Amino acid sequence: MSQPTRSPQPGGEPDLAAVAALFADRSRARILTTLLDGRALPASRLAAEAGVTQQTVSSHMARLLDAGLVTVERSGRHRFYALAGPEVATVLEALAHLAPVPPVASLREGSRAKRLRDGRTCYDHLAGRLGVRVTTHLIDRQVLVRTDGGDGVRRSHSDDLSAPSVVAPFEVGPHAAEELARWGVNLVALQHDRERSRPMLRFCTDVTEQRYHLAGALGAALLHSLRDQGWVTSGPRPRELSVTEAGEAALGRLLDGSPAQP
C-alpha cells in the first residue's frame, strides 16, 4: 500500500537543511535519480543502480519514506518504491541544473550520455532532444500558443535555469484537439478530468537542451499515449527512451515527414 506524501504542518519556517541532507548522500541521490522516470522499482534494482547492497538501500529507503519523498507498495514478497509525486521530481531536476557535470571518462559513459540527451523521461513526460522537438512541433501547429512574446521553445529571460518547472508561458490553441487526436490524446477528456489536480500545462527548461519541453497533465498524457501505441519504449537504463520501428514511421509522419530520431 502506498504511503501518502506528508502534509505540511503549521509552525515556523520550513527546515530546508533536513530535506537537503537527504539529497546530499551520493547513494541516495542515485536512488532518487533512478526513480525519476516515474516507475516503481524493487530494492534490488535500486541497489544495482546505486552500487550498494540491498541492506544499505533498505536503510536509505527508510529515511526517504519517513521524509515523504518516496512511497512503497508491496507485491508478493517484494517492495516497490516510487517518487512521492511530481514535486519531488521537480526538486531533482532543479538540482540537476545546479550540479556540476563530470567529464565523460569512458565510451560507455559517453554512449549513456548521448542516449539520455536524445530522448528520456522527466518523471512522467518527454525530455531531451525528442521532448524539445515534439514541443516545437506542437507550437508550430498552434496546439500551444505562446503568451509571453517569446520565441518557440526558447526559455523566457525571467526563467532561472535552476527552476526548471514553470507555469506555462503558453495556452492551449483553439484547434489543439484535432492535432492532439493524431497523437492519441483526447484533449476534451483531459480537460474534463475532475480528478486532475495538476496544471494542464507546465514546462521544464530541459537540462541538456536549455529549451522548454512540455510537462504538466498534457505532457504526461502525451508520453502515456506514445508508450501505449508502442512508439517509444524504455531504454536499457533508467530514464532512457528509445523510438521503436513503428515509432520511427509514426513520428516521422507526425513531425512533417522528418526523421523521428533527434
Rank of each mutant, 00 (worst) to 15 (best):
E209V: 11
V207L: 15
A181K: 06
F203A: 07
Q210W: 14
Y212M: 10
L187N: 06
W183K: 01
R182N: 06
T205Q: 12
M200A: 04
L190K: 09
P199Q: 06
W183T: 02
H192Q: 13
Y212E: 09
D193Q: 13
L187H: 10
R196T: 10
A189L: 10
S197A: 14
E209Q: 15
M200D: 00
V185N: 03
T205Y: 03
R196W: 08
L187C: 08
N186Q: 09
D193L: 08
V188C: 00
T205D: 04
R182T: 05
D206Y: 14
D206R: 12
E209A: 10
F203G: 05
N186P: 03
E209S: 10
Q191V: 04
R182G: 07
G184I: 05
C204L: 13
M200C: 07
Y212F: 11
N186F: 01
A189S: 11
N186D: 15
P199N: 04
P199Y: 06
R211E: 14
V188R: 11
E195P: 00
D193R: 05
A189H: 08
G184T: 00
T208K: 10
E209W: 07
A189Y: 05
L190W: 07
E195S: 14
M200W: 02
P199T: 10
T205H: 10
R182A: 09
R194H: 09
R194N: 12
H213G: 08
P199F: 03
H213R: 03
G216W: 08
T205N: 08
L187I: 06
E209N: 12
H192R: 14
Y212R: 07
S197E: 15
V188I: 10
H213V: 11
V207T: 11
A189W: 09
A181Y: 00
R202A: 02
Q210H: 12
S197C: 12
D206E: 09
V185Q: 01
R196Y: 12
R196D: 13
H213W: 03
W183Q: 05
G184F: 02
T205V: 15
D206G: 13
N186A: 13
